[in-house]
Nucleic acid binder design. Structure first.
Length: 497
DNA sequence: TGAAATGTTGGGGCG
DNA sequence: ACGCCCCAACATTTC
């Protein structure tokens, strides 16, 4: 039974050749089949959104090209109800049989239902006599490796990250395979693979070119972005990362999500280029902390698997949301009348990305000013972000709503005018995404309704017509939010006391 | 990885 | 010269 030395490597969220432990292991055999399976019905709790699919499409093309350049070949399959292959498992079984493969390798994913699916696949393949080996290619530490002194998962970031750093002993990244000639399966009788285009990841209307211009896909692009960031932006990261009109952030989130660069590579490249001075070491530590938040989000989703759509703090199940379809739509479309919020929501819609500072502002606005359930925001971000990641999205929204681990306290309500003045003082970010305000003096850009009538007229703005009047009054909304969160406190004391 | 309300201090105008 | 008031400017507390 163990006679054949052929193997299968299953690409998932690790669309890279460098530092890919499962790929390196799989290539040790005689012949190796490289496979990607598009099975959106197996993703959960939601199928990938349209923006994420566009990026995936480009990523697969880039990967295919890179593999071909090394003499190899990528096999693509569509699996799902009504398809030739109903499940990912069916693809792997057919491929193993046709290719006479005795072992299958992949890098682990950590979304709750994917863990369940993968373990079922693993069990079925093992039962069929195959060897299955899985690896860590996505995290610095496995979620189960980091524990408090009592052996429990962490719920506060700082001690979590300290614990990670204490026992972080990372091997250097694995080099990309020198050749992939052993993966050239073109002469064999294999189940009919499809092309990347056949996966139908692109939408019918071509609205996505702007997205790809701004954020090119692929492993080479990921490394280019990393090097550019280290060279030009890291030194001022701690201040510039909050300025949405600047290139002060690394823009690595999408590449990390799709695994076009590994966190281990980011870690080593950052360390290698920034130990010379105290300042650069501090800047590096500040940046690597963000990698820490990424780790923390996976840690939390792994240990609290229902939190993608359920609050971690169960008292929030009774939160008095004011569900309102119209308010939600205004937020989604960037028509709230608060320029920094609208700029962010329009950046998201137009580019599939939103600057992190503005994600916090817009999320806070939806949850606190508009009292809409955080799950609605999470769904919208999931559908529109190209870097949509279940763990990171969940952490971000539960943090904003105050119902997650180490979350923002309920009384922390961002003032959109002050946030705008602090982080976009000249209104450059706003003017880029809310062009109807471009003629307005930056003095009034964060609160157009406070501008004198003649100033508005001169700028060609009619509030309520060319640009919305504020859909809620800031200080009234703030008071309402505080009152709503207050009821939660009372409920809690009523139960416990 | 807030903001607003409230408290304190100290300099200057003024009777 | 003195006390009184005003009010920035900053600090602290509260939500």
């Amino acid at each position: 039974m163990k006679t054949n030395r052929n193997s299968i490597f299953w690409f998932r969220q690790d669309l890279r050749l460098e530092d890919n432990p499962a790929l390196t292991a799989a290539l040790a055999g005689e012949r190796c089949y490289l496979v990607y399976i598009w099975a959106p019905e197996e993703e959960s709790p939601w199928e990938p959104g349209a923006a994420s699919r566009v990026f995936l499409h480009e990523s697969l093309l880039a990967l295919q090209e890179k593999i071909a350049a090394s003499g190899g070949r990528l096999l693509c399959f569509r699996a799902g109800p009504g398809q030739t292959f109903p499940t990912s498992l069916a693809v792997l079984q057919a491929l193993a049989k046709a290719g006479n493969a005795g072992s299958i390798y992949w890098n682990r994913r950590y979304e709750p239902k994917i863990i369940k699916r993968d373990s079922e696949i693993k069990a079925a393949l093992k039962a069929a006599g195959l060897t299955v080996e899985t690896f860590n290619g996505a995290l610095l530490k496995e979620p189960w490796q980091v524990k408090t002194k009592e052996g429990k998962p962490f719920q506060v970031f700082t001690p979590f990250w300290r614990a990670c750093l204490n026992e972080l002993d990372l091997e250097p990244p694995l080099p990309a395979p020198a050749t992939l000639q052993s993966t050239d399966s073109s002469s064999l009788e294999l189940p009919r693979a499809v092309t990347v285009a056949d996966l139908e990841l692109l939408p019918a209307l071509n609205w996505y070119e702007g997205i790809l211009d701004r954020y090119p896909a692929g492993e080479s692009e990921a490394h280019r972005a990393l090097e550019h960031f280290l060279k030009h932006a890291l030194a001022n990261y701690s201040l510039d990362r909050d300025k949405p009109h600047r290139q002060g952030v690394s823009r690595l989130s999408t590449y990390l999500h799709f695994g076009q660069v590994s966190p281990r590579s980011v870690w080593h490249r950052t360390k290698a280029s920034n130990i010379a001075t105290k300042e650069s070491a501090e800047a590096a530590a500040c940046f690597l902390r963000e990698l820490g938040w990424r780790e923390f989000s996976h840690h939390l989703l792994y240990h609290f698997p229902d939190t993608a759509d359920t609050p971690l703090r169960k008292d929030f199940l009774d939160f008095p949301w004011h569900k309102d379809e119209e308010l939600l739509k205004s937020w989604q479309k960037g028509r709230t009348g608060y320029p920094i919020v609208d700029a962010g929501m329009r950046e998201l819609w137009q580019t599939g990305i939103m600057h992190n500072r503005v994600r916090m502002i817009t999320a806070s606005f939806l949850v606190k000013h508009l009292l809409q359930p955080w799950q609605e925001g999470a769904r919208w971000f999931w559908d529109t972000l190209i870097d949509a990641d279940l763990a990171q999205n969940t952490l971000g929204w539960q943090w904003t709503a105050g119902c997650g681990a180490d979350a923002a306290p309920y009384f922390r309500i961002f003032n959109p005018m002050l946030q705008g003045e602090k982080f976009d003082p000249d209104g450059l970010y706003i003017k880029r995404y809310v062009p109807e305000l471009a003629g307005l003096d930056s003095k009034y850009i964060h609160a157009p309704w406070t501008a004198p009538p003649q100033v508005l007229e001169k700028a060609g703005i009619t509030l309520g017509t060319t640009y919305p009047a504020p859909i809620v009054d800031h200080s009234e909304a703030r008071q309402r939010a505080l009152a709503a969160f207050q009821t939660l406190k009372e409920l809690k004391t009523a139960v416990t006391g």
